[in-house]
Each structure stands twice: as C-alpha cells, then as structure tokens.
Design a protein around this nucleic acid. Structure first.
Lengths: 147, 147
DNA sequence: ACAATTGTAACCACATTGGTTACGAACTTA
DNA sequence: TAAGTTCGTAACCAATGTGGTTACAATTGT
C-alpha cells in the first residue's frame, strides 16, 4: 500500500471536476470538499496538469477543469500522474554477490514486483472517473464502480 | 509501491532458508547475504515466525528454518507476514460530508483500493518460495551458499 | 488599478524506516 | 555447573517522506 493519500485525493479531485462538468473549480473550493489545504490541492492539480489530465487558469475567473471527458480518464492515469515511484522498494544495500542467492535475487525480485504492480495497474486501468462519479451518485447500490 | 524493503528482504531470507534445506541458518549468516544488520534480519524472522512460516531456536546450535516446504509458502504469505498495512492510504481528514462527492467518496475509494490490492495479492499468491529458488538457482554456481 | 487565483518555494511537525548498540533469555556442549 | 553462542526485543539515531501552512510573484478578468 502506498503510504500517502495523494492517489485518494487525486480521485476525489477528478470526481469533483467531473461533476462540475466544464465549470471552473478553484483550489479553495476543492479543498473545502477534500477537507485539506488549498496548496495541497494545487500540488495534486499541478501533477495532474503535467500529465495532461487537467488544465488550470489563473486570475479572478481561474480554476481547473478536466482536460478530457471523465470516461476517458482512468484511475491508472491518475495513479501514474500522482505516484512518483521512488526506486526504494528493494534492498537498501546491494546483496552480497559472493552468495549465489544474493548475486541473483535482485532481478528476480524486480520481475516479481513488476508483475504484482502490473496486476494492480491493470485493475486501476479498468475504472474511469466517470465510473467513480456514477458510483458516488448511486450510493444505494453500494460501492460498485464497474459493472 | 511499498516504501520499505521488508518484503524484498523477506523473500531473500526465505529463499536462503529454502536453499539451506533444513539446516539451521543464523541471523548473522543471513545478514551476510542480505548485506544488512543481523538485527534487521531477526526482525523479519520474528514477523515470519509470528505468521508460522519459520521456526527459530536460540543457543549455540540455533538459527532458523522454514516451517513448511518451500513449495507450500507463497510470496503472499511473506507479504502479509511482513507488511503491516497502516490504514494511511486514504484521506487524513474525513472529507466534507456537506459535499455530495465528499460524503460518498470514501467507501468508493476503499472498494477501488481493495480491488487493486487484491489483484496484486492474487499475483503474489501464485508464486512460491520454491519458484523463486528455482529462478535464482544456476547449476554451475555451486551447491552451497557462502556468506 | 484592483481583486482573485494559480504556481511554487520554504519551512515545520510528525511518522516511518533501517541501522546500531545493548542486554537478558534460552540453548548446547564440555 | 560454567562458558559460549544465539535469539528476541527494547532503545535510540539519522535520514527520508508526508501533509499542512505561510508567503509571494505571476497571471487574469472586471
């Protein structure tokens, strides 16, 4: 599990923008729904903008909008935009190359972690922001997001 | 991605124990292959022992052995034994319940993250310590590990 | 000109991580 | 029994990452 809540905030923000359907939303207004600081929201929006998922405008009528229709943005897009994967999941120090296991374990581990990560991302790629918005709008159906 | 390397170390340790096939391995010897401190190894071994995956013995002939055959230990077993999932992946503060999205987003997010995590775990559950040992093993590399 | 808004930098308090030292408990052997 | 080895665990440390906050320049519409 990621130890940060940036992905959760990104999904929340994207869902808000989707619900806003074209109207510009300020970071202050978004922060009011997420219940955090506007700067935190702007940091997320900045990452999403770098990934081409939202566009923002400064000034008195400024704010952010989705750059694509909600059905054309997957949670994988949000995940990749927001989750800077530090290369920190393996050994701190390289294992002992004089040990047969230590000498060859790293590429094996990389392959394993890569496959596990791909399985996770495949799942996130199946869900769009439109799905999340629909799930949020039909609470009586439980948390189902994909048919 | 997890921000720690406990899972990587756990797989490394389990693979070493599997290669040792029954012989007792000390934390000092294992630490020599992982290239870390024996206490770090003992912390991992302690978590694995709590999950019933290894058994350890103190004393001059002490050390650790796998509690089950390598083919009966999946990487999911190791992952669950070692990765204390802090409930830290969602919002720090609960979202604003006065906002339709904020009021309903949390269970939706929980469902999404749960499914993504399940996909990852399903993948890890398919791989056993025996598989890792086979992947690591090279016949011309000698029969015994030396730290 | 003015007010509102974004974009960022800077800093802080807090949590987590792996590494290290230390020491008591348990175990084997002589 | 005595000695030596090993585990188990607590305590502490430096490094890192996190979200929250303040501050301020740049941009934009009225």
């Amino acid at each position: 599990m990621s130890k940060n809540c940036r992905f959760a905030v990104a999904v929340h923000v994207a869902t808000l923008l989707a619900q806003n359907s074209g109207a510009s939303a300020t970071s202050d207004w978004i922060a009011g729904s997420v219940n955090t600081n506007p700067v935190v929201v702007r940091r997320i929006l900045s990452a999403l903008a770098k990934a081409g998922l939202v566009t923002s405008q400064r000034g008195i009528a400024g704010g952010s909008v989705l750059a694509r229709p909600p059905a054309a943005i997957t949670l994988l897009d949000l995940y990749r935009a927001v989750d800077e994967q530090g290369p920190q999941s393996l050994h701190h120090q390289p294992p002992n190359p004089a040990c047969p296991v230590g000498a060859r374990i790293v590429p094996v581990l990389e392959d394993i972690l890569s496959r596990a990560e791909q399985a996770k991302e495949r799942e996130l790629g199946r869900i769009t922001v439109a799905d999340v918005l629909a799930a949020v709008h039909t609470p009586q159906c439980g948390a189902r997001t994909v048919a």
